[in-house]
């Protein structure tokens, strides 16, 4: 079954490379460049996996994650939190808010594709 992925990332170039590698792996990919748009897309499309950057404009990644985990209809979305900070505190926050996976930038292409596919297979 095809995995649907929403990439919430304000860095256009990263989003583009992510889209390319995930689509080549067979995923259906959408992209949102800020937190509010990401939340709207998630509510509208209910993707299998959300690749969520922490540092997003308008609504940061943690706020998006918190909202997703508070809305029953969005509970099934698997969330992979992506951060350029890589600090242990970010990881703890992500875990506490209910993230399913956590990766730091710069990521490894094969690793992130494998993780997205793993999460997609569980939904």
């Amino acid at each position: 079954m095809t995995t649907t992925v929403l990439i919430a990332e304000d860095e256009q170039n990263i989003a583009e490379s992510l889209r390319f590698i995930l689509e080549r792996a067979g995923c259906i990919v959408r992209h949102a460049a800020d937190g509010e748009t990401a939340l709207a897309e998630a509510r509208a499309d209910k993707p299998d996996v959300l690749v969520l950057d922490v540092m997003l404009p308008s609504l940061n990644g943690f706020d998006v994650l918190k909202t997703i985990r508070s809305e029953p209809v969005l509970q099934k979305i698997a969330v992979l939190v992506l951060t350029a900070k890589g600090q242990s505190q970010d990881r703890q926050t992500a875990d506490a808010l209910g993230a399913d996976a956590f990766m730091t930038k710069p990521f490894d292409n094969a690793a992130i594709v494998a993780e997205v596919l793993r999460l997609g297979s569980q939904t």
Partner: peptide, 23 residues
């Protein structure tokens, strides 16, 4: 600066990996 550096290196690493893998 560190945030910018990590994002730039992420994009570069991801694209060069795509090139390396060919296809």
């Amino acid at each position: 600066s560190i945030h910018d550096m990590l994002n730039a290196s992420t994009a570069i690493r991801s694209v060069t990996t795509i090139y390396d893998e060919g296809g």
